[in-house]
Structure formats: structure tokens, C-alpha cells
């Protein structure tokens, strides 16, 4: 593992969150493209992140709760008179 690999792996999760500076984003992106082993780790981590989101987004609010919120919102309908 080269120094570039270390640097890229250190910043991988922040890169995945798109929170690096533009320059760092570009640096990491370029490395991941050039280095298949690091690219593989990246793909795996990206998939894992996507999976966490997908699995945790599957619960929708119960219907009755939604109705309740709608009624709450309707209480202040402007211009009701």
C-alpha cells in the first residue's frame, strides 16, 4: 500500500459523505480511479452506506399518525372565513 492509498483510505468515509473540500474530493476520486484495490474498498463502502439507508428507510409513518398531523395542520388553514 502506497502513501497515496493510505491518504485515500483515511479520507474515504468523508469522501463518501461528500464533505471533503473540492480539491480533496478530486484527489481521492483520481486515486480511486487509478488504484483498483482502493476502488474496490470504496465500492464496498458505498454499497454498505446505501444499504444502511435503504434498510432504515423502510418504515413509513402509520396512517393514523399521518391523519393526526394533517388534522393538526388543517387547524390553521388561513382564510377559512
Amino acid at each position: 500500500m502506497s502513501r497515496d492509498c493510505d491518504a485515500a483510505m483515511d479520507r474515504l468515509s468523508v469522501y463518501l459523505d461528500r464533505e471533503l473540500t473540492d480539491r480533496d474530493m478530486e484527489q481521492v476520486r483520481a486515486h480511486l480511479e487509478d488504484c483498483p484495490p482502493c476502488g474496490k474498498v470504496f465500492e464496498f463502502q458505498a454499497e454498505l452506506k446505501r444499504l444502511v439507508r435503504k434498510e432504515c428507510c423502510s418504515d413509513d409513518a402509520p396512517h393514523r399518525l399521518r391523519e393526526w398531523v394533517r388534522k393538526l395542520a388543517a387547524q390553521e388553514a388561513p382564510g377559512s372565513g
Partner: peptide
């Protein structure tokens, strides 16, 4: 999205 392509 960041200026770069979305890495995901």
C-alpha cells in the same frame, strides 16, 4: 451534490 460527480 458536490461539484464533482456523486461518488455513490
Amino acid at each position: 451534490l458536490p461539484p464533482e460527480r456523486n461518488p455513490i
